[in-house]
């Protein structure tokens, strides 16, 4: 028996909007620790890892570990029917072939039940080692989204380079080149406007902008994004999900052959 009640149901709507275009089908894993998902995009170039810790739910009942295969587009369709302020409860019986999403309006005067068929998904779970990164950049998520969008009008790839001068995003395409440098800036009025660069060593990596742009669909979740980089390793783009967890996007870099 599974019953997860999330008062901030809007968070789940935003989570689905953030990942549904990158991943078609995925297993949601439910354990006493929380509600999680790990899935790769169809090209196996990007991986998304979601964690919503059990403490973040108002009520969290998960009698035994359960893996539920869902089509994320269909799940997003159902969650779109919830109001942004609705309380969302996810319910499933052990061995059931469906999951129920219950939406309660804040004033409790409207209760909706949406039942969605589950599916069998054969997916391998990858071990992601804890890594020390050469550079970690924390910046406003809207700024990062703007940079990715702007650069993708010029080129297909972004070179991200972190030095003590700052973080540089650059691209080149048929019509020319573009380069945007963001410097560390902690003297802002609001902490969410800060850009913080922690650098152990300078690092330069090349990524496909198509994926970066897809990751920025998570922007409504968090005012800040964290980009963690090490040479020749996947870059990690992380958005916090309120106080309860995170969405991490891992993107394999483009490497010299």
């Amino acid at each position: 028996m599974l019953e997860l009640r999330l008062v901030q149901g809007g968070l789940l709507k935003k989570v689905l909007e953030a990942i549904k275009d990158l991943v078609n089908d995925a297993n949601f894993d439910c354990s006493p620790a929380g509600f999680s998902l790990q899935a790769m995009d169809s090209s196996h170039v990007a991986l998304v890892a979601l964690l919503l810790r059990s403490e973040g739910f108002e009520h969290y009942r998960c009698d035994r570990n359960l893996s539920m295969g869902m089509n994320l587009n269909n799940m997003a369709k159902m969650l779109k029917c919830a109001g942004n302020d609705d309380i969302v409860t996810i319910k499933a019986d052990d061995g059931a072939d469906s999951v129920t999403f219950m939406f309660e309006s804040p004033t409790q005067d409207k209760i909706s039940d949406f039942e969605m068929k589950l599916m069998d998904i054969d997916s391998e779970h990858l071990g992601i080692p804890e890594a020390e990164f050469q550079a970690i950049v924390r910046m406003p998520s809207a700024e990062f989204a703007r940079i990715c969008k702007d650069l993708s009008t010029i080129g297909d790839t972004v070179v991200i380079s972190v030095t003590k001068e700052g973080v540089k995003f650059s691209t080149r395409g048929d019509i020319g080149t573009a380069s945007i440098v963001c410097r560390q800036n902690t003297t802002v009025d609001k902490p969410e406007e800060a850009t913080v660069i922690e650098m152990e060593e300078p690092v330069t990596l090349t990524f496909a902008l198509r994926y970066m742009n897809s990751f920025t669909k998570a922007t409504p979740l968090a005012s800040q994004v964290t980009i963690s980089l090490s040479s020749d390793l996947p870059g990690v783009v992380e958005y916090k999900v309120a106080e309860m967890g995170y969405i991490r996007f891992y993107l394999a870099p483009k490497l010299e052959e």
Binding site: M40, S43, H44, V45, A46, L47, E124, H125, L126, G127, I128, P129, T157, T206, A208, L233, P234, Y250, A252, P253, K254, L255, E256, E257
Partner: peptide
């Protein structure tokens, strides 16, 4: 010339 790496190159099945 750079080519697109895949995730499996870095993370193995657990």
């Amino acid at each position: 010339l750079k080519s697109q790496a895949r995730i499996a190159r870095f993370f193995r099945a657990s």
